[in-house]
């Protein structure tokens, strides 16, 4: 069942790397924006909420195109990052991680926001009277109590990143060893005569990885919930 070639294994390894990096980089933003949306009132909040959720409803090709024109080497953001920080996204695995992170972000934000909203603010007040400044209140009360949602959001984002196709292939193309993730490899195999069998084997790998991510999410979230509520 696993007699798939080295090229396919490369795609699997690349997918994992891209998804891990995408999720890890999205997490601080996810927590910060989740907190903003849950706890703050500010001008343009609805707009921010809308923009964050846009990748969920836009055709992935459109998200990929928008990334291409803004984060491409000649795009305004891409050019700035290249000139000042030497970061290149176009046609690199980092670009795949960016598009996967953007696509997974709405799935990450939602559970984080909901779980922060559910944290009892009276506990935060109690922490403040005990000498904790705002940041410490967040770190020692809000975040631990919101942990089940943070974990669920993280793993959903990871699972989404693992399966990303449209935005990634539009933004960074389909280069074996650089930007060819599992999905792109499966697509490529289905386009060549006799590639169906190899594609099928990669499909099995993709299903197993996604299932494992979902199960892990469930398990971690349940464990965190137990910890939060005591016993």
């Amino acid at each position: 069942m696993f007699d798939i070639g080295p090229e396919q294994w490369t795609a699997v390894a690349l997918s994992l790397r891209v998804s891990v990096v995408a999720t890890a980089c999205a997490l601080p933003f996810g927590i910060a924006i989740g907190w903003l949306l849950a706890r703050r009132k500010f001008w343009g909040k609805t707009l921010l909420d809308g923009i964050v959720h846009l990748p969920l409803v836009l055709p992935p090709v459109v998200t990929g195109y928008l990334l291409l024109i803004s984060f491409g080497r000649r795009g305004p953001v891409g050019a700035f990052l290249y000139e000042h920080l030497g970061i290149v996204f176009s046609f690199r695995w980092t670009g795949a991680a960016l598009s996967c992170g953007v696509m997974g972000f709405p799935l990450m934000i939602r559970p984080i926001r909901l779980s922060i909203e559910a944290v009892d603010r009276r506990l935060e007040d109690a922490a403040a009277t005990l000498g904790a400044n705002r940041f410490l209140v967040f770190l020692t009360v809000t975040l631990p109590l919101a942990a089940p949602g943070v974990i669920a959001g993280t793993l959903l984002c990871f699972a989404r990143a693992l399966g990303e196709f449209g935005a990634t292939i539009t933004f960074v193309s389909n280069i074996p060893g650089e930007t060819q993730t599992i999905s792109a490899a499966i697509y490529t195999l289905t386009q060549i005569p006799g590639g169906d069998a190899a594609a099928g084997r990669l499909v099995v790998v993709a299903i197993m990885l996604s299932l494992a991510a979902l199960l892990a999410s469930e398990w971690f979230a349940r464990r965190a919930a137990l910890r939060v509520h005591g016993e």
Binding site: R122, R227, H229
Partner: peptide, 12 residues
Amino acid sequence: GYVFQDGRLFPH
């Protein structure tokens, strides 16, 4: 120090 009506112990 503030003791609230509902205790407000940290459950975690």
